[in-house]
């Protein structure tokens, strides 16, 4: 598992760790620089463009067979597929 870094609030659950069926609200978007090829700022903008923004409700609808990855997330009435690695940046409560 990817270790949680100190700047992630203890009570927040990264969406990348949540199980299928999980429902939560986005608390913040915190992109770790090393987690993807994209610069953190760009990754953050892409997540926001897909609707991952503070306060939005998320619901994990589906997950893949291998490594339960990727996941399909219901957000704002749309369904978005993304990998768990990217979903680590989405902190939910």
């Amino acid at each position: 598992m990817i270790p949680l870094s100190p700047n992630i609030p203890a009570q927040a659950l990264p969406l990348g760790l949540a199980a299928k069926g999980y429902r939560g609200r986005i608390q913040s978007i915190v992109v770790q620089d090393h987690s993807t090829q994209l610069p953190a700022a760009e990754m953050e903008r892409r997540l926001i463009e897909l609707g991952f923004i503070e306060g939005a409700e998320v619901h994990i609808l589906h997950e893949g067979f291998f490594g339960r990855d990727p996941i399909a997330v219901r957000i704002n009435g749309a369904t978005v597929a993304l990998r768990r690695r990217e979903a680590m940046a989405i902190l939910t409560v």
Binding site: A72, V80, A81, R83
Partner: peptide
């Protein structure tokens, strides 16, 4: 050695 880019897609 390059990490793979993100997969994000609207269904």
């Amino acid at each position: 050695g390059q990490p793979s880019p993100p997969f994000m897609l609207e269904l």
